[in-house]
Amino acid sequence: MSGIDIELARLMATLMLVVSFMLLYQDRLAGLINAYALQSGLLALAVAAQAHAQEAPHLYVTALLALVVKGLAIPLALHRIVLRLGVHREIEKVIGVGTTMLFGLAVTMLAVLVVLPVTETAAALTREDLGFALAIVLLGLLTMISRRNAVSQVIGFMSLENGLILAATGARGMPLVVEVSVAFSILIAFIVVGIFLFRIRERFDSVDVHALDRFRGELP
């Protein structure tokens, strides 16, 4: 285990966290999808660095899956969906960018404060990865709840899953079967959500999820 791949893994995890903030900040769908693709690419690099650091060759498969499925296939499909839905305009936000960013910072600090005392016995890299991963998961959740557009909620969900994979590969000895099944369940979820999006649009002429609330009679 040499020093350089640990530094690389750490750097990639940090960059993923920064991209999570970009997801919060970005207010156009195309930019949001590109940021998600960037995060997935960084995840692939982080996992590859972990594979080298832990000398676990099956993690390279994980990295490849992350790059091909989440870095290329899903973003391309999302771009097509956005074009076909005709929603490549601005995203409506529930709360403003500044407030969301402050929430994001608070959530990141929360993640760090929660993870650090719990994992005192773990190796430094695992600790950092767990802290970053929890922060990315929480930021993904925040992206989901701060947006009204269904497509950006899907992206928040996918970014959350990136955080989960980061956490899973940081811990030693995750079996490949688990990883493959997670990747496929994400793909299935993506397809289901894609179909769902078109159903919402057909019914309400919009992908604003508040239309659903109004339909259920929860909003005036």
């Binding site: 750490r10 920064v18 903030f21 910072l105 650090l116």
Partner: peptide, 10 residues
């Protein structure tokens, strides 16, 4: 802020 937080993490 992130830079400061990360410093504490590492």
């Amino acid at each position: 802020v992130l830079a400061t937080v990360l410093l504490f993490v590492s």
